Computed example of a mutant assay.
Amino acid sequence: MLKTTVFEQLKQAMREKDVLSKGVLTLLKSSLDLAEKEKGSALTKEEEIAIVNREIKQTNQALEGAEKAQREDLIAQEKAKLVLLRSFLPKQLSEEEVAALLTEAGVTKGMNMGDAMKIAKPLLAGKTDGGTMSKVVKSLI
């Protein structure tokens, strides 16, 4: 279970006095705990991955803001956070692999974007980010 892994890494970061990892892992653990509490039962693997993806998206937004402000210190910090958060995701598929899976699942030329995404989202949940998924779907339809 992802929550257990996060907790173990958090304890390790505390022992090593790794401030950045401790902060990121604490944030991730609290997000997982909150979602579990709201649901009232243990989270599924897909739900855990969705939470990690949400944290990655927020970190990407913070990274963009730091790049616009040209804050090198923040850019390095946000990139380090992204590396740590991505370590909790399963292996990410390349655009070619995504295209092959979608073609196999029935996404074809002339298809409505909404219908194509209804096929793509459950199929690719956690295996690729939303931007890549959308880009590949657009190229296929």
Rank of each mutant, 00 (worst) to 15 (best):
residue 17 K to I: 12
residue 3 K to Y: 02
residue 66 A to C: 07
residue 78 E to R: 09
residue 60 N to Q: 14
residue 99 A to M: 10
residue 28 L to H: 09
residue 96 E to H: 01
residue 24 V to D: 10
residue 94 S to T: 15
residue 61 Q to Y: 13
residue 101 L to C: 02
residue 132 T to K: 12
residue 126 G to M: 10
residue 124 L to Y: 03
residue 2 L to R: 11
residue 111 M to I: 05
residue 121 K to V: 12
residue 100 A to E: 07
residue 112 N to C: 04
residue 100 A to T: 09
residue 107 V to N: 02
residue 99 A to I: 09
residue 62 A to N: 09
residue 95 E to T: 05
residue 105 A to M: 09
residue 36 E to V: 01
residue 122 P to K: 02
residue 56 I to W: 04
residue 84 L to W: 02
residue 52 V to L: 05
residue 56 I to L: 11
residue 13 A to R: 00
residue 68 K to M: 09
residue 127 K to N: 04
residue 85 L to F: 04
residue 104 E to F: 07
residue 116 A to V: 05
residue 121 K to F: 02
residue 48 E to Q: 14
residue 100 A to P: 03
residue 97 E to H: 06
residue 85 L to C: 04
residue 110 G to F: 03
residue 136 V to Q: 01
residue 114 G to I: 04
residue 76 A to Y: 01
residue 27 L to W: 09
residue 77 Q to G: 03
residue 12 Q to H: 05
residue 76 A to C: 05
residue 94 S to G: 13
residue 72 E to K: 14
residue 114 G to D: 12
residue 28 L to G: 06
residue 67 E to I: 07
residue 83 V to L: 11
residue 29 K to Q: 12
residue 1 M to L: 07
residue 24 V to H: 01
residue 82 L to D: 10
residue 11 K to Q: 11
residue 69 A to Y: 02
residue 130 G to D: 15
residue 62 A to H: 10
residue 136 V to T: 06
residue 124 L to F: 04
residue 2 L to M: 09
residue 107 V to G: 04
residue 35 A to K: 08
residue 122 P to Q: 04
residue 54 R to K: 09
residue 75 I to W: 00
residue 106 G to M: 03
residue 98 V to W: 00
residue 44 T to I: 02
residue 40 G to K: 01
residue 133 M to V: 10
residue 44 T to C: 01
residue 101 L to W: 03
residue 113 M to P: 11
residue 117 M to R: 10
residue 11 K to R: 14
residue 31 S to Q: 15
residue 121 K to G: 00
residue 65 G to W: 05
residue 112 N to S: 12
residue 14 M to Q: 14
residue 50 A to E: 13
residue 86 R to T: 08
residue 117 M to W: 06
residue 61 Q to W: 05
residue 77 Q to V: 05
residue 38 E to F: 09
residue 116 A to R: 06
residue 90 P to N: 05
residue 7 F to A: 13
residue 93 L to K: 06
residue 109 K to F: 10
residue 54 R to P: 00
residue 20 L to P: 02
residue 111 M to L: 13
residue 128 T to L: 03
residue 130 G to L: 13
residue 36 E to S: 12
residue 115 D to T: 10
residue 4 T to G: 11
residue 115 D to S: 14
residue 92 Q to N: 05
residue 59 T to W: 01
residue 70 Q to M: 11
residue 67 E to Q: 15
residue 71 R to D: 15
residue 1 M to K: 08
residue 15 R to I: 06
residue 24 V to W: 09
residue 126 G to V: 06
residue 137 V to I: 07
residue 7 F to Q: 14
residue 69 A to F: 00
residue 74 L to N: 07
residue 133 M to L: 15
residue 69 A to N: 13
residue 68 K to D: 12
residue 100 A to S: 15
residue 115 D to I: 05
residue 96 E to T: 13
